[in-house]
Amino acid sequence: MEKKLNKLIEDMLSRLDGISNLNDLNLLKAEYLGKKSVFNDLMQELKEVPKEEKPRFGQMINEAKNRISDFLEEKKTALEKQLVANKLKDESIDVTLPGRKMNQGSKHLISQVIEEVEDIFLGLGYTVKEGPEVESDLYNFEMLNLPKDHPARDMQDSLYISEERLLRTHTSPVQVRSLLENTNQEPLKIICPGKVYRKDDDDQTHSHQFTQIEALVVDGKASLADLKGTLLFIAKKLFGDEREIRLRPSFFPFTEPSVEVDVSCYKCGGAGCSMCGNTGWIEILGAGMVNNNVLSAAGYDPEKFQGFALGMGVERIAILKYGIDDIRAFYTNDLRFNKQFRGK
C-alpha cells in the first residue's frame, strides 16, 4: 500500500512538471482529487484491509491525498504568478499617447453670472422672479414713474410692437408685477434676471439686447443703509473680499434718492490704473430707494412701506470680471470664446 501510494505521488509529480497552464492543472486536479479519482479505488481497497490495519492505511491515504493537494496548490500559485508576470510584461503601454478626446462643454458666461448672482441673493433670502419680455407701456414705464413724453424716457430708446406694447427696456416691470401679485403686501425680497432690449445699434459697447438683474426689497423699514450694506456684500462676493464701495448721486425715475455704485478697482486696489481710468473706482451698478410714486402706483401706502432697488447689467459685470473688450462677443457665440469660460 505504501509503495502504491508513493508511486502514485511520483507519477503525479512527474505529470505536474509537464503542466504549463491553469486549465491542464485543473484537469489533473480532477483526476487525482475529483469524484472519480484514483483515491476512490484506494478507498475501495481499504474496505478489504484487516480491521486493525484500517486506521494506519486510512491515515496513509489521507496523507498522500494532502500531499498531492499541496503540490497542486503550490503549482497553481506558481502558474498564477507566471501569468501575472506575463500580463505585466504584455500589457505595458506608452502612457504618453493621447487619451480620448471629449468635447469640452460650457455654460454661457451670461448664465454663469446670473447663477452666481442668484446664489448670492438666495443666501440673503431673496426669491427669483421672471416676467414677459414683451411688455406693456404701463408696466415698463408708466407705473415706474415714467409717464408718457417724460424726458427721462430718452434714457431708454425702445423697440415698440405697438403704441402700447414694447420689448421691455429693463427688468423693472417684473418688480411692478411682483408688487401687484403680492396682494397681502407681505415683505418682498426679489431679484429679476432677464433679457432686455434697447434701440441701440450694436457696437463695441452697445447691444440692442442685453441682460439685467434687478433686486427689489419692499417692507416697512428697508433703508438706504440696508441698501448700502447689501451692495457692499454683493461687491465683495462678485469682485473679492477686499473690495470697498462708494455711492454717488444719480437719477432713475423709479428710485429717489438714486445712486451709482462704484467698487474699488480690483486691478490696482484703488491706487488708480488704466482699468479704472486712474480714479481707483469702477462703476458697477445703479440703485436707490423706491420712489413713492412707484409704491403708490402699485397700491402700497408710501407712509407704511419703503424699500430699495438695484439693477446691474450682467454683461457689464462679466466684462469687468473677465476683461472682455467687446459686448458683441456674448452674442456671437464664437466657440473659441464660449469654451474659455467653463464655469464653476
Binding site: 433670502g125 426669491t127 423699514k221 433703508s223 440696508d226 448700502k228
Partner: peptide, 26 residues
C-alpha cells in the same frame, strides 16, 4: 432726503442689511 444725503455724504450712511426675514429658494 436726496439733497440732504448727497450734501452730508453717502459715505456717512451706515452699512446694514434688511432685517425682515424672508426665505430664498429657486
Amino acid at each position: 432726503i436726496e439733497e440732504i444725503v448727497r450734501i452730508s455724504g453717502y459715505d456717512k450712511i451706515p452699512l446694514t442689511i434688511p432685517a425682515t426675514p424672508t426665505f430664498g429658494y429657486l
